[in-house]
């Protein structure tokens, strides 16, 4: 079977990232290979400092790899200039951060629309999409609330909506549930899975939280900047249910 590049949401080949701190060098990623299918959900687990955030940042065009190639949805972003990366982030990936980073003086709906406002406007289309997403995320009646008037779980859902606004090929979640309690965390993870699967969007979910791995198609374990094991998690989950 021949595959074109676009059959994968992400292909990382021998990707390394070395931070230099003063004279010292920290190898955060060491020759990482990782491939994510077009509609696959990967859980990325590993101890603190193992390189999870670094991997996500590189996959999402927030950081440049020191070495190796990074292809997202068919675009090789390894040689992109900062300007190209900005555009790539605006158009092709979504981020959900650990701490909820909504714009505090904008309503839930406006927080989604920000994504449209910082790029070439699409106007009506963006508004329709924002309303649709808010509906799917169960926030239809919260759309004109400011972040301070939302619960933690609701805020995280708004952040998920924002990440989906640009119809990304790949969404990167960096510990999306760590600020939530177990029950809320569960809800949010279910929602993420539902949203990803219904759109056929790929996702990498970074977590310390083993429960999340049950919702993922595969679990990648990273230790000291190396991916040590990738196992399929989906069938495990099915067995447990």
């Amino acid at each position: 079977m021949t595959t074109t590049a676009t059959d994968f949401a992400l292909q990382m080949e021998r990707v390394s990232k070395i931070y230099s701190v003063g004279d010292a060098e920290v190898v955060a990623l060491d020759q990482v290979d990782l491939t994510v299918d077009a509609d696959e959900i990967i859980a990325l687990v590993g101890p603190s400092g193992s390189g999870k955030t670094t991997l996500c940042s590189i996959a999402g065009g927030l950081l440049k790899a020191t070495d190796g190639s990074v292809i997202v949805g068919g675009q090789d972003i390894s040689q992109y200039t900062p300007k190209q990366l900005t555009r790539f982030r605006r158009e092709s990936v979504g981020f959900v951060f650990q701490t909820v980073n909504l714009v505090p003086f904008l309503t839930a709906r406006e927080n989604l629309l920000v994504v449209d406002e910082i790029g070439p406007r699409t106007g009506r289309r963006a508004k329709d999409r924002a309303d649709q997403l808010l509906g799917e995320l169960g926030l239809a009646d919260r759309s004109s609330n400011l972040p301070a008037q939302l619960s933690g779980g609701e805020r995280q859902r708004v952040a998920i909506g924002r990440a989906l606004m640009n119809e990304p090929n790949l969404v990167l979640f960096d510990e999306p549930t760590s600020a939530l309690d177990t029950q809320l965390g569960d809800q949010v993870v279910n929602l993420i899975r539902h949203e990803m699967k219904s759109r056929g969007t790929a996702a990498i979910i970074v977590t310390h939280d083993e429960r999340i791995t049950h919702y993922a198609d595969r679990v990648a374990r990273i230790v000291d900047g190396r991916i040590s094991a990738v196992r399929s998690a989906r069938h495990l989950h099915r067995h447990q249910v």
Partner: peptide
């Protein structure tokens, strides 16, 4: 700075 970081992460340019 925090807000700008987030906005840049979702694709806002320094210019805007």
């Amino acid at each position: 700075i925090g807000l700008y970081g987030v906005l840049k992460a979702v694709g806002a340019s320094s210019a805007i």
